[in-house]
Computed example of a mutant assay.
Amino acid sequence: MKEFPDVLVCAIFFGVLLSVFLEKSTSEYEKLELDFLHCRDDSEERTLILAEKNHALLEKQNYEIYNATLKERNRIAREIHDNVGHVLSRSILLTAAVRAVNNDPKTAPLMDSLEDSLNAAMNSIRSSVHDLHDESVNLEHAVDSLIRDFTFCPVGVTYDISDQIPRNIKYCFISIIKEALSNIMKHSNASSVKILIREHPALYQLCFEDNGTDIHYDPAFSGIGLVNMKERVYSLNGTLQISTQNGFRIFITIPKSVNNN
């Protein structure tokens, strides 16, 4: 009977030791698990940061490539205009001079053909230079330039659009923003302007709004400026909405299509 309490004491002592050991093991396991979770979170955070930096780097590289392309197009356009264009102009003038002093009827058809060819070449050069210049226009830079010249009131811009916007949409947006800013100076008492240019999967969006209160807009008697805006947008199969609640607001959407080049 005396041995039983000794065994019980040993069992209790062993149980306490086992409990302490298990508690310590559990604590160490929880600490290891917590360290693992922290390491995993840190690793995921570093992965996300690295992905963001890579994305920003790619965007910067694409932007630099795009700007370099625009500068090269401008350079080519200038060289064509200054060199080839001047040579053709001089050749056309010389041909006209030769025709004026030429008395041989046999060479007259040849001179006519030569003059027509030179004129055709000149028209082709002009068209090429015009196209190169149009393609080199940067919408964001053009909008920034318009805003810098606008001193009537502060202008905030949200620009979220790719560099590959079609040429006719670029000129449409530039013309509308220019006209809208001009109308504010002429007709509005606005103290702030907001411009939103955004690209969606299926359309391009332009929103122009001010906080002016001196607004007199009648759809039946739109000025030539608003008429021109509507014609530009409608020619691209777009929509234009005008609101005069809490300021003057123009909301434009133009669908993406193969015809918008």
Rank of each mutant, 00 (worst) to 15 (best):
D163M: 06
V155W: 00
I147P: 00
D116L: 07
N138G: 09
S124F: 03
Q164A: 12
A120Y: 08
A121G: 04
L139S: 07
T151L: 06
V129S: 05
S162I: 09
T158P: 00
N119L: 14
D144G: 06
A142V: 05
I165V: 15
I147N: 02
A121N: 06
S128D: 05
D163W: 06
F152M: 03
A142H: 06
V129R: 06
S128F: 04
N168E: 12
H130M: 11
S127T: 11
D144M: 13
G156R: 14
V129K: 07
G156H: 11
S127G: 08
S136P: 09
V129E: 08
N119K: 15
N168K: 11
V137Y: 08
S117C: 05
L118I: 07
R126K: 13
V157Q: 10
D163P: 04
N123S: 14
H133R: 15
L139G: 07
F150Q: 00
M122F: 13
E140F: 12
I125T: 08
H130V: 03
H133F: 03
D149S: 14
D134P: 00
V129W: 02
V157G: 06
D149V: 01
I165Y: 05
I165G: 01
S117P: 00
S128H: 11
D160L: 10
D144Q: 15
R126F: 02
R148A: 13
V129M: 03
R126N: 13
C153N: 01
S162T: 15
T158F: 07
C153T: 01
I161N: 04
P166C: 11
N119E: 12
D144H: 15
H133I: 12
S127N: 14
S128P: 00
V157I: 15
E135G: 02
V129T: 09
I125C: 09
R167T: 15
P154K: 06
R167M: 12
D144L: 15
S128C: 12
Y159N: 08
T151G: 01
D163C: 07
D131H: 12
H133A: 11
A120K: 15
T158M: 07
V157D: 02
I147Q: 03
S127H: 11
G156W: 04
H130T: 13
Y159C: 08
R148S: 14
D160V: 05
T151M: 04
R126T: 11
H141P: 00
T158Q: 09
L146S: 05
R167W: 01
R167L: 10
R148E: 13
H133L: 14
D134T: 13
I147R: 03
G156L: 07
I147D: 02
A120T: 10
S136C: 08
V137G: 05
V157C: 11
L139N: 08
Q164W: 09
D160G: 05
Y159L: 09
D144W: 05
S124V: 01
L146R: 05
A120C: 03
H141K: 15
Q164L: 11
Q164K: 13
Q164G: 15
R167Y: 05
F152H: 02
S162M: 09
S124H: 05
S145R: 15
L139E: 03
L146G: 02
D160H: 10
N119M: 09
V157F: 10
D149M: 06
S162E: 12
E135T: 07
P166K: 11
N138K: 11
